[in-house]
Amino acid sequence: MIEQQLVDGCIREDRKCQEQLWNLYATKLLTVSIRYCQNREDAEDVLMEAFVKIFDNMSSFRGQSSLETWMRRIVVNTSINKIRSRKFTESIDNETLHIGYADQAFDAMDAKALMKMLEKLPVGYRMVFNLFAVEGYSHKEIAELLNIDEGTSRSQLAKARKALQDMIEKKGVINA
């Protein structure tokens, strides 16, 4: 079934189409929510909540982007709301760090290892890194979304990179 048929079906509240949409995207979107949330339980909550929003608001999908991108945005925003509701606040400063990222160990990383690393990051670092590096947001967009300064966003990213680099180096040493 093509994407447009799925969208039309969901607008008509066709349960089969809704289920098919879930089967197609749930696993991918769970990864997105896990990247933001502190634990899997929260991530699953976010996923279900996001799908409720997706089904309820399917008629507002204009087709200006792919369906997956639209759904991914909803999951990201639901995750951020979840984190906010849990009052996961991080102290953020404007210190700028220089980070070297040349490391052979990077190439050897698999997805699970990278997920573990992200999981270990403080929430603030993780959100900014995910938004910037994985989702492709600009610092300006991140600043608006998280209600922080652009400079803060940059410093959070730098710190996140630094922390990840440390983890990768350690892992590289262990692997070596």
Partner: peptide, 15 residues
């Protein structure tokens, strides 16, 4: 680039 690595590896990863 580490950003690219994370994106390439995790963007389409299915849990």
């Amino acid at each position: 680039h580490p950003d690219q690595l994370f994106k390439n590896t995790l963007y389409n990863y299915e849990t």
